[in-house]
């Protein structure tokens, strides 16, 4: 008996069989490659964080302490707790939903030769799509500075906005002081070139992306303000107590600016 290939029954059976086969095949493939893919994504984030620390040659797992900011203080995350560790690398876009009251932002700590640096994740919007990155912060002369930054983007214009992902532009952020004398967040990409030690030269033709970067920096780093304040205060106390022992006169000079920053 010849099969009528254009009968409805044949078509339905044909489709069902085909879809079941294809579905099973793809499900199998996705499951077997899932771990490898997840490892790639995670590894990329770890490499970015090490780049932000300015020490890309070192292995993340060996040198970085992971933690969260709880009530303005660094609380270490147990490395054995897999769920907690995974949450540290949660999609940066999710950070946008966090509010300061939730108060538990992920942060990465790196100590070497007496210098402590902290890396915070950032996420924002560029001109065409998402932008994200990691910023490394440390305290120099009682001021919080950017010690390194890594940024990437989903689809900014090549040669213009996309320049934020290049090392050349990211280098320009190094050593920029976060807060001005009034205690306001002052790091921004400035049209017409950097005017002071807070500003970074903006990208010609990439103004909208630069605006996005400015917003991302202010929003993302802003979430860590309470922590950064305690950090500078702690450093200031260390310095003052040391200097008090040697030279009590220095006290006034050192305490003043710290108070301003705490407000």
């Amino acid at each position: 008996m010849a099969i009528n290939k254009n009968s409805n029954a044949y078509i339905i059976i044909y489709t069902v069989v085909m879809v079941v086969i294809v579905g099973a095949l793809l499900a199998f493939l996705a499951t077997s490659l899932k771990d490898k893919q997840a490892a790639n994504v995670l590894n990329e984030k770890k490499v970015s964080i090490m780049k932000a620390f300015g020490s890309a040659e070192e292995n993340f797992d060996d040198v970085v302490t992971m933690g969260r900011i709880v009530d303005g203080a660094f609380v270490e995350v147990n490395k054995e707790d897999k769920a907690a560790v995974d949450a540290m690398f949660a999609d940066l876009a999710d950070l946008k939903g966090l509010t300061a009251s939730e108060n538990e932002f992920p942060i990465f700590k790196y100590e070497k030769d007496g210098v402590t640096k902290y890396v915070a994740p950032m996420a924002g919007k560029g001109l065409w799509g998402d932008i994200w990155g990691y910023v490394s912060l440390n305290v120099v002369d009682q001021k919080v500075q950017i010690s390194g930054i890594v940024m990437d983007h989903a689809g900014e214009t090549p040669g213009l906005g996309a320049e934020i992902a290049t090392e050349i532009w990211q280098k320009k952020f190094e050593g920029k002081v976060l807060y001005n004398a009034e205690g306001e967040f002052a790091v921004r990409m400035q049209k017409g070139g950097a005017q002071n030690d807070h500003q970074v030269d903006a990208i010609t033709g990439g103004t909208k992306t630069c605006d996005g970067v400015n917003a991302m920096l202010a929003n993302s780093i802003g979430k860590y303000k309470s922590f950064l304040d305690t950090l500078t205060a702690a450093v200031a106390e260390d310095t003052t107590s040391e200097e008090q022992a040697q030279e009590p006169v220095a006290e006034d000079v050192n305490v003043e600016p710290t108070k301003v920053e705490e407000e």
């Binding site: 290939k5 254009n6 044949y10 078509i11 044909y14 489709t15 085909m18």
Partner: peptide
Amino acid sequence: NGVPSRIRIIVQLV
């Protein structure tokens, strides 16, 4: 030889 010609484009896409 087995593809029903009425749905061949869909089959190709799959």
